[in-house]
Design a protein around this nucleic acid. Structure first.
Length: 137
DNA sequence: ATTCTGACA
DNA sequence: TGTCAGGA
């Protein structure tokens, strides 16, 4: 007699460091679908696994909608090559976006370097000028 | 004591 | 997502 292994909402909030509000929010987004015991939510192992993937997806910068699509892949019988293709497209898009951001950041950093160098050069020039215009005592 | 739904200075 | 309300 397997004991129905369920998690209460607080079990998951403590384990994953999220708030109950977040779990209910994800439920509204249909990312999680806990069953009910009366009013209380009962999260099954499946929900726990999904939550893991959701949080991982967030860390990767995916939107909840994109994460939802990915999660659906795990449900469907598999073989939905069409959806897998969509997922691969998303991954590609994400990669490109991140690479573009990295490029922009590197450019900005390079600009800052040159600006700083010029600023220091001017500062040096001013100090030299002041030194020459104000004789030592 | 806890969770739930609904709402938004 | 936070947070507060008001009920179960």
């Amino acid at each position: 007699m397997a004991k129905e292994s369920f998690y209460l909402i607080t079990d998951l909030t403590k384990e994953f460091g999220v708030t109950t509000r977040t779990l209910r929010f994800y439920e509204d987004r249909d990312l999680l679908t806990p069953v009910r015991r009366g009013r209380r939510r009962l999260y099954r192992p499946r929900d726990r696994t999904r939550l893991r993937l959701i949080l991982r997806g967030k860390r990767l910068g995916l939107t909840l909608d994109e994460i939802a699509e990915i999660l659906d892949l795990f449900d469907r019988p598999s073989g939905e090559s069409q959806q897998i293709d969509r997922l691969l497209e998303r991954i590609d898009a994400r990669r490109e976006a991140l690479l573009a951001q990295r490029s922009d950041i590197e450019k900005a950093l390079a600009d800052l370097d040159t600006v700083e160098i010029r600023a220091r050069e001017r500062l040096g020039a001013i100090m030299v000028e002041e030194d020459t215009t104000q004789p030592a005592m």
